[in-house]
């Protein structure tokens, strides 16, 4: 186990190195640089050149990359060009809201999707199955900016139940936090629920056809028990895989939901940073998201061993 963990964590290194390399050069290929973005239209050439020199943007790219890498390894992520905030606290500050939102969306998705998927599979080709599949496809085919605005119109304007947008830290005001969280979590959870429901349904169908479920039924074990105790246990693995992948992707994919609900997360922060050519923020954010993504994948694999003792870690 320890050896396995060590080797898995060691495999993080090339991936993170690769993502840092790609993000560094990709963002520099985008036309315009931080000095231009910050000083705006009216700045004269000398001011821009001075700022470039101050930010060391006049150095060769390789030197810039190695300098950045060296600083990051010693824990210094630099400062944002826009407003001069330190990058690491900025990222950590934005990671919290995004993690809370992603987690809530995952819960929404689990609560809706897994029961729906199981029921749809056990009652295949009935109205229940069609209804659940239809709802899931609605979720898949609605862009989140569109769904988000509909939810705001419905639950903030026409039925004034929930705030339309904004963020309240959970510790300062737990109820306020939850009321602000509901609509973005539903928006983000919808697409996730759709995919999870479909995966649950098909994994369950697979298992329900298997020999031991047939055997269990033949032995006269009641249907509900078969479904929950025998079938679902075995359908969990593909579902967990999907959830792991999606949760990781969520961290970066929440940008639209964050934009619509003014949720101060890392997705919006990164997109703004791309547009402002805020190199230090973009590189730091990509590195952080990639790390979390890889760690979640690792966690998913560990969950397998809990769910199914037959899976060996190799």
């Amino acid at each position: 186990m320890a050896a396995y963990l060590t080797s898995r964590i060691a495999s993080l290194v090339p991936i993170l190195f690769g993502t840092s390399l790609v993000s560094f050069f990709l963002i520099r290929l985008v036309p315009g640089d931080p000095a231009v973005a910050l000083l705006g239209l009216e700045a004269d050439e000398r001011a821009i050149a001075a700022l470039r020199a101050q930010l060391a943007l006049d150095q060769p790219l390789v030197v810039q990359y190695l300098t950045w890498l060296g600083r990051v390894l010693s824990g210094d992520f630099g400062r944002s060009v826009q407003g001069g905030r330190e990058v690491l606290p900025l990222l950590v500050g934005a990671l919290g809201p995004t993690a809370q939102l992603s987690f809530a969306a995952a819960i929404v998705s689990l609560v809706i999707a897994i029961p729906a998927g199981i029921v749809a599979a056990t009652r295949r080709d009935t109205a229940v199955d069609y209804g659940a599949s239809f709802a899931a496809l609605c979720g898949l085919s609605m862009p989140s900016f569109w769904l988000g605005i509909l939810l705001i119109l419905a639950f903030s304007v026409h039925l004034p139940w929930l705030p339309a947008s904004g963020y309240v830290p959970p510790l300062s005001d737990p109820l306020g936090f939850i009321s602000h969280l509901v609509l973005p979590a539903l928006t983000l959870g919808a697409a996730l629920a759709a995919a999870t429901m479909r995966m649950t349904r098909s994994a369950m169908l697979e298992v329900l056809r298997s020999d031991y479920v047939r055997t269990a039924r033949a032995k006269g074990i009641p249907g509900r028990l078969v479904v929950w105790r025998h079938a679902f246990r075995n359908a969990r693995i593909p579902v967990v895989t999907l959830l792991g992948i999606q949760f990781g992707q969520l961290l970066g994919g929440v940008v639209i939901t964050e934009t619509v609900f003014s949720w101060p997360g890392i997705g919006k922060l990164t997109v703004d940073a791309i547009f402002a050519r805020d190199y230090a923020v973009v590189q730091g954010a990509v590195l952080l998201t990639a790390t979390i993504f890889v760690l979640i994948n690792l966690a998913t694999d560990l969950v397998y061993t809990v769910l199914d003792p037959r899976v060996r870690l190799a």
Binding site: T19, Q249, G267, V271, I274, T289, A290, F293
Partner: peptide, 9 residues
Amino acid sequence: VIFAFPSIL
């Protein structure tokens, strides 16, 4: 590496 990159970004 591509997979670890947030897709929209």
